[in-house]
Design a protein around this nucleic acid. Structure first.
Lengths: 119, 119, 119, 119
DNA sequence: GTGGTCTAGACCACG
DNA sequence: GTGGTCTAGACCACC
């Protein structure tokens, strides 16, 4: 499991770690029902404080990405639920972006064009 | 000039203020070459410290939105440059979003549909 | 670490401090990957405000001399990058100086002579 | 007489103006014994405060570039003196630069090479 | 522990 | 009048 943390970034480590784990789930490198490493194990591997990892796991749980069982640790929620969450995520990002685009006087056609250039 | 600061927000005041000023520029409520209120004047109006406003102005200057004229204070950069900056902004947001969408297995048609629902 | 601040100088403290730290790095008294003192620690030692030190650190970070590690504070960037920056610095100073010399009608030989007198 | 002032620069206007005038003298666009425009005239042309121009003239006088006569205004010192001043100027710039270069571990040969690349 | 933000009030250079 | 700098002391998030 390749997780990269940038210690000189402005983004808090627990957020970076959250993003990395979500990325791995989305890419299928962590599958539904897989267990995540224990808090202490992961903290040790990444050379960060275990409180930080715990915070990330708590966040992921709140977001619905993982479930935490005191006995067996954290495991990834089944894929359906995750896809749902991520789609909502894209949706709300899109809401913000559409507002920005409209404020710049763009119409839907302009916006489509920007997407075509990038897709 | 209506600027709203949420003092209970997690977003730092100088960032909120930056966003508000960018918003006013985009909406055309502040026009190119218009002068911005002086640091201390605006600080007084918003009931915040002048250092905080100065920080915002420094940020806006670095981003290319305003110029500081030693004789008269801060003024908005010519609009051309600003539209440019903001378009690049939307562009890079879009880059990120497209990656997310692709990772979720969406094709361009799905993405268009999401936009149609929201535009 | 010997850092001298001249409180009666016209040069702002945060600039003097920046220069002193760059000097120590160049002289090898602070080595690559060394940690710098914490903002508040250094502020206390120098008998200046921590905001001033923070400003210096932010500047050094923007210039690429140091990195801020969220876990442990500020540390010096790998030396390679720093030598690079400083050489460019000397280079651009030299550009300016050569223009001046040429404007005075000096040729390269004259310029070499001036250097010989001083080296 | 083409003088450019950048009002959004961090460099004080009176310094910029000083540099511009020195530049014009060096380039021979203003000759020894030429009169400079009156304080008010120049201030008006450049759209700056006449106190600022007066400050520049005072500075130029202190540096020995011009002489001020209450009746006829400011005139440029005869060329010999000016060349002298400017050479000293280049000399002290060079002093600083040589220190920097030595600190970077450069020897005279390296320094010569940098000059050759740029001359 | 660390850095980041904010305040209230001060002094200064510039114009 | 303007912005720039600095202080002393406070609160907060992160680790």
């Amino acid at each position: 499991m390749i997780i990269e943390i940038d210690f000189s970034s402005d983004i808090p480590i627990y957020i970076q770690l959250r993003n990395e784990i979500v990325r791995l789930i989305v890419l299928g490198e962590i599958n539904a029902s897989d267990s995540l490493p224990s808090v202490r194990r992961l903290a040790n591997d990444l050379n960060i404080n275990h409180m930080t990892v715990a915070k990330t796991y708590r966040l992921l749980k709140e977001e619905g990405f993982i479930e935490i069982d005191r006995r067996i640790g954290a495991k990834v929620t089944d894929k359906g639920g995750i896809r749902e969450i991520l789609l909502q995520d894209v949706g709300s990002d899109l809401d913000v972006l559409i507002v920005k685009a409209k404020n710049l006087g763009m119409d839907k056609k302009n916006f489509y064009e920007m997407i075509d250039e990038r897709w």
